[in-house]
Amino acid sequence: MIGNGINIHGAGNRNSWERLLVQIAHHCAVDVPSVPKGTALTEFYDVLEMKRSSPTADGDDQNITLNLQAEFCRLMERWEPLLHHHTIMNWAVRHGVPVLTTNFEEVLSEAAGCDFIRPPELPFTDFYPWSCRFANQLLDDPCDGFGIWHINGMRRYQRSIRLGLSHYMGSVQRARTWLHRGEVNLFNAKNRPDWDGARTWVHLIFNKPLLIFGLGLTEAEVFLRWLLIERARYFRKFPERAHPAWYVYTPEVDDTSEAGKLFFLEGVGITSVKADYAEIYESPSWAA
């Protein structure tokens, strides 16, 4: 599972989501140099979305009509893959490893040289295109080979972009139905492929080992943290189906939340591994 750290490495701060949100804030008459401390990025986005329909600061009665999701996507249009994108994606292709990403843009798929695939026989909504992937071939079982799956939405479907806390809660609600409700939910299915999310990226969370890097996994990542809790509960119910997971991170100076995050990850069965950015993105192991 790859976060936006892969885009920040080698590109400086210009590819950070915080920087993009601050740019968007200026269009919403919110003049701040950075996201205020104590405000999560998800909460900051929700505030901007509310400001969008408020009068501008100079008293103009005309409502702001900016589509924040579309604007966020537009600001990522020029992002391009760097050498480490190609190296890591080539490794995944060679070894037939599925790739989950919280990123919205198509930098990883461009680096891998693969195509967008939307299974024609499956139900589709552009709010939650969870069965769509970038790959070289369509596989019925997501675990069977390489594919790039966008957890929080993709740029080509702007309404799928999950940026705010409200968005994350919507994703939780949708996934919870597949996991716990109905006759063919994950926790009741007799066979792992026999459940409603079996042909989506959610299947990978519960049926493959996870290597997580480039991702903050802070307490603001409500949806992902909830999925990891459900994964741990699923493995407790079916220990024979359990898979390991690793979280690779670079310690940040004065990060007061790090201890709590590592406590949480240990509690849901994830091993934390320290590494600097070069060890993560420029490791010779990616050439294997």
Rank of each mutant, 00 (worst) to 15 (best):
residue 128 Y to T: 14
residue 73 C to G: 13
residue 184 V to E: 04
residue 204 L to Y: 09
residue 155 R to M: 12
residue 95 H to I: 02
residue 127 F to Y: 13
residue 149 W to N: 06
residue 21 L to W: 03
residue 217 L to I: 03
residue 85 H to I: 02
residue 32 V to L: 13
residue 7 N to K: 09
residue 190 K to V: 08
residue 156 R to Y: 07
residue 206 F to N: 10
residue 165 L to Y: 14
residue 159 R to S: 15
residue 180 H to M: 06
residue 62 Q to C: 13
residue 46 D to T: 12
residue 88 I to D: 01
residue 212 I to N: 04
residue 96 G to A: 03
residue 77 E to W: 10
residue 121 E to A: 12
residue 177 T to P: 01
residue 285 S to T: 07
residue 257 S to P: 00
residue 93 V to K: 12
residue 231 R to C: 11
residue 135 A to Y: 09
residue 221 E to M: 08
residue 142 P to N: 09
residue 247 Y to H: 10
residue 81 P to Q: 04
residue 16 S to Y: 08
residue 129 P to F: 00
residue 122 L to Q: 09
residue 71 E to T: 14
residue 248 V to N: 01
residue 246 W to N: 08
residue 262 L to C: 00
residue 266 E to Q: 12
residue 257 S to H: 12
residue 262 L to F: 10
residue 125 T to F: 00
residue 7 N to R: 01
residue 41 L to A: 14
residue 77 E to T: 12
residue 283 S to E: 02
residue 216 G to S: 15
residue 35 V to G: 08
residue 147 G to L: 02
residue 147 G to V: 11
residue 247 Y to D: 06
residue 30 V to N: 11
residue 254 D to K: 11
residue 193 P to H: 05
residue 184 V to H: 11
residue 15 N to D: 02
residue 211 L to G: 04
residue 64 I to C: 14
residue 252 E to A: 13
residue 97 V to P: 00
residue 209 P to C: 02
residue 216 G to E: 10
residue 187 F to M: 11
residue 72 F to P: 08
residue 175 A to K: 06
residue 140 D to P: 07
residue 22 V to C: 07
residue 205 I to A: 04
residue 266 E to V: 07
residue 41 L to N: 14
residue 91 W to R: 06
residue 95 H to G: 01
residue 262 L to H: 05
residue 151 I to Y: 11
residue 86 H to G: 02
residue 251 P to N: 00
residue 63 N to S: 13
residue 60 D to T: 10
residue 170 G to D: 14
residue 284 P to S: 00
residue 227 L to K: 09
residue 229 I to V: 14
residue 247 Y to L: 05
residue 198 A to Y: 04
residue 98 P to I: 03
residue 212 I to K: 09
residue 58 D to N: 15
residue 121 E to K: 11
residue 240 E to T: 13
residue 159 R to M: 07
residue 8 I to E: 14
residue 102 T to E: 10
residue 193 P to E: 01
residue 225 R to L: 12
residue 211 L to H: 05
residue 243 H to R: 13
residue 13 N to C: 00
residue 280 I to G: 06
residue 135 A to I: 05
residue 81 P to C: 04
residue 71 E to I: 00
residue 112 A to F: 02
residue 254 D to Q: 12
residue 110 E to V: 03
residue 80 E to Q: 12
residue 111 A to R: 02
residue 260 G to R: 01
residue 108 L to V: 01
residue 18 E to D: 15
residue 101 T to S: 11
residue 284 P to Y: 03
residue 84 H to P: 03
residue 11 A to K: 15
residue 233 R to K: 15
residue 56 T to K: 08
residue 281 Y to P: 07
residue 233 R to G: 09
residue 83 L to N: 13
residue 168 Y to M: 14
residue 248 V to P: 04
residue 166 S to W: 12
